[in-house]
């Protein structure tokens, strides 16, 4: 019984995703599976997926990061400024990467050296970063790539989807390799599972945490860049609820928030796709707004309950 239960459990998240897709295909009479819809689902899912895949390492090694919203907004804004000043996509990409890495490194150092309840600190950090963006942007509140020094090439709907695929598939493959085919993945799982055992097995927890935060930084940079190219502008309220979306995506992807051996890279992508299909499917039904939100909450709780059926303790979880 132990073995079969183990494998079934690993596929729960995918069952959850398939159920949501099938349900909305029927409910929207196939509209959700049309070409445009698939492209739009990808466009919507891209940001959450990239950031979630990157965060798998952070949550996996037992850390916690609810400040993705603020980090993403800061990265996109500073990237946008660089884009306008230079007029070149390459410089904009570099600026995004630099900002994301600096912020993630600070969070990594903080997580590695300062002992503090990370989930409260990162929630507060999220609010602070969003407020800092407002302070930086001052009165002029939206950055438009159109008034860049040299015109930045714009991409139409289909080209944009192509860029999305390349970015998503590329980052996902790199993370799969990093997680499953190098020592990092195993170290993350062991550190998340039992920090004392990790120390006594000779794993350097500081390095693991720093690398994990750096990878999540790359995910944020990519998400910001793709958003800038697609929307060609960024406002101070961009990415506001990415913090909760990432957490919901990872949990829907079947990953425990405390990390450890049950960490899965696929949780990032499956969770992001599930929540995107859920959100866009609901708004496509054209229901009353209150019913949409109740429906979303109920489906979210149901899928999370199913996905996390596996790790029960007799003590109430904290």
């Amino acid at each position: 019984m132990k073995k079969s239960w183990e494998t079934i459990r690993n596929y729960f998240p995918i069952f959850g995703f398939v159920i949501v897709v099938v349900f909305f295909s029927i409910a929207t009479k196939g509209a959700i599976l049309s070409g445009t819809s698939l492209q739009s689902l990808l466009n919507q899912a891209i940001a959450t997926a990239l950031v979630s895949i990157g965060s798998v390492f952070v949550f996996g090694c037992g850390c916690f990061d609810m400040s993705m919203g603020g980090t993403l907004c800061m990265t996109a804004v500073l990237g946008g400024y660089a884009g306008i000043a230079s007029g070149s996509i390459f410089v904009m990409a570099l600026a995004c990467l630099a900002t994301a890495l600096v912020l993630s490194l600070l969070k990594g150092l903080f997580a590695a050296y300062v002992e503090v309840p990370l989930f409260i600190v990162t929630i507060v950090l999220g609010f602070v970063l969003s407020a800092l963006v407002l302070v930086i942007m001052g009165t002029e509140t939206t950055i438009l790539l159109n008034d860049a020094v040299k015109p930045i090439p714009s991409f139409n709907f289909t080209q944009m989807s192509a860029i999305n695929i390349v970015a998503l598939a590329g980052f996902f493959i790199v993370c799969v390799i990093l997680f499953n085919f190098t020592a990092l993945g195993r170290k993350v799982k062991i550190l998340g599972g039992n920090p004392v055992t990790a120390r006594q097995t000779g794993l350097n927890s500081v390095n693991i945490k720093l690398i994990s935060f750096i990878i999540s930084g790359v995910g944020v940079a990519l998400a910001a860049l793709v958003a800038l190219l697609r929307i060609r502008s960024v406002g101070s309220t961009y990415g506001a609820d990415m913090g909760t979306d990432v957490m919901i995506a990872l949990v829907l992807g079947g990953m425990p928030l405390t990390g450890g051996p049950r960490t899965r890279i696929s949780a990032g992508i499956i969770g992001a796709l599930t929540i995107t299909v859920l959100n866009s499917g609901l708004s496509m039904l054209g229901l009353d707004l209150a019913i949409i939100q109740i429906f979303r909450a109920v489906i979210y709780l149901a899928v999370v309950y199913v996905a996390s059926m596996t790790y029960r303790t007799n003590l109430l979880p904290r």
């Binding site: 995918i14 995703f17 599976l33 049309s34 070409g35 698939l38 492209q39 689902l41 990808l42 289909t158 989807s161 999305n164 695929i165 998503l168 598939a169 996902f172 493959i173 799969v176 992508i269 499956i270 796709l273």
Partner: peptide, 11 residues
């Protein structure tokens, strides 16, 4: 990964 690509093949 296959799942994500299948979705986009719709494109």
């Amino acid at each position: 990964l296959l799942l994500a690509l299948v979705m986009v093949i719709g494109l």
